[in-house]
Computed example of a mutant assay.
Amino acid sequence: MSVYLLRRLIQALGVVLVMSLIVFIGVFAIGDPVEILISPDADQIERERAIVALGLDKPLWLQYLSFLGNALRGDLGRSFVFNEPALQLILNRMPATLELAFGAMFLALLVGLPLGLYAGLKPNSPVSKGIMAGSILGFSLPTFWVGLMLIMVFAVQLGWLPSTGRGETREILGMRWSFLTRDGLAHMAMPALNLALFKISLVIRLTRAGVRETMLMDYVKFARAKGLSPARVTFVHVFKNILIPVVTVVGLELGSTIAFSVVTESVFAWPGMGKLIIDSINVLDRPVIVAYLMIIVLMFITINLVVDLTYSVLDPRVRLEGK
């Protein structure tokens, strides 16, 4: 296990280094932030002074080396717009995005696993067919449209839930969290559900396919022949063996949920990282864009490593170390 972890950490370091170069060149090759940040009435002297202050007068390779050296010290640059450390800006918004993403994935597992299990065990029943038809809707409906419909029904017409914002928060470990208060949970309900709809459909179909395939295996037939109860066959021999593909996809989807929650955060005015990156792109706030993308890369790498380690817990037959 230690050899495997060391090898994965070395691979992760290489991936981060390559991605930092790609992200840096890609972001800095787009537009000129001076044209947005400096008034058109400014003279050439003021423009030159601003370019030097922003560090844009140096060659691109020198800017990258400076960025890399500062990143090793935990400094990902200062925002052109807010004049604050880019990392600090992102960390201030991160709790809002993380609780929304984890809330969506929790709903996906809470709803998707039992529905997919039922649809797999009784595939020909009308309820199962209704579940699968509903999963197709979850895949097909646009996220922004569903969000607007949720606001119109539950906030405008029924008045049950607040439409926008994060609500009351409570501080733990220096971070503000919404799920710890009733008002925060009320504000979180609709955006989390909107973000979870696609994931619920995905978990339903994955679970159903896994159950249908596992039910045909010899060890399941043998367990039935031994006279084990249907509940024991389902939850011990079937359910445990379908978790590996589900965990794989859910782990990857968690990373994508964190990275691409932009639409949901925009619709519900949720003050997370997605809204920050959209605002930063509009004004070409390059340090914030680069810092955001680098943090997302680190999150994906960490999640993939955790998923791989979870394999050996779910199924001891999976060996992580290679010879």
Rank of each mutant, 00 (worst) to 15 (best):
I296D: 00
G130D: 06
M152Q: 14
K58Q: 15
R205Y: 07
L37M: 12
I172R: 10
I258F: 09
L117V: 10
E171A: 13
S312K: 14
A104F: 07
R232M: 12
M1Q: 11
L254C: 09
V81P: 00
A231V: 14
L298Q: 12
G77E: 03
S261G: 15
K323F: 10
E253M: 12
E99K: 02
D41Q: 12
R205C: 04
S66M: 07
L309D: 04
A101C: 05
V3N: 12
L110M: 14
V220H: 03
G174Y: 05
I281C: 08
I296P: 00
P40I: 06
D218V: 10
L180D: 01
S261D: 03
V283H: 00
V238R: 05
Y292L: 02
W61C: 00
G112Q: 01
L21N: 07
L9H: 06
I30N: 06
F67T: 02
M175A: 15
M94K: 00
A53L: 11
S128H: 08
N124E: 13
M215W: 04
M190Y: 02
V203H: 03
F179M: 10
N92D: 12
L121F: 08
S266M: 12
A269M: 13
H237R: 07
V262Y: 10
A223V: 05
L76F: 14
P59L: 01
N70M: 06
P245G: 09
M217V: 07
L91R: 03
I204L: 07
S2F: 14
L298A: 15
A71D: 03
G69V: 13
T181N: 02
I36K: 14
T97A: 05
K226M: 08
Q11K: 08
P33D: 04
L158A: 14
K199H: 13
V250Y: 02
L158Q: 12
P95G: 04
V111Y: 04
E46G: 11
M105K: 01
S20E: 00
L298T: 11
A104D: 06
P40T: 05
I296G: 01
L216W: 09
V111N: 03
I204C: 02
L121K: 10
A86W: 00
P316S: 09
L117A: 04
L137P: 05
L6V: 14
S256Q: 14
L76T: 03
S20Q: 04
D75E: 11
N282H: 10
A50F: 12
G210Q: 09
V156M: 12
A189Q: 04
A50W: 07
A225H: 06
H187K: 06
A192W: 04
I244R: 06
D308A: 05
V263T: 14
L252Q: 13
V283A: 03
T234P: 00
D57W: 08
V34E: 05
R7T: 10
K323T: 09
A192Q: 06
L150A: 11
Y292K: 00
S79I: 02
E265T: 10
Q44G: 00
G322Q: 08
L298P: 03
L314G: 06
R286N: 10
I136Y: 08
F268D: 07
G210I: 10
T207A: 13
Y118K: 01
A189I: 13
V306A: 15
L13P: 00
A50T: 11
A101T: 09
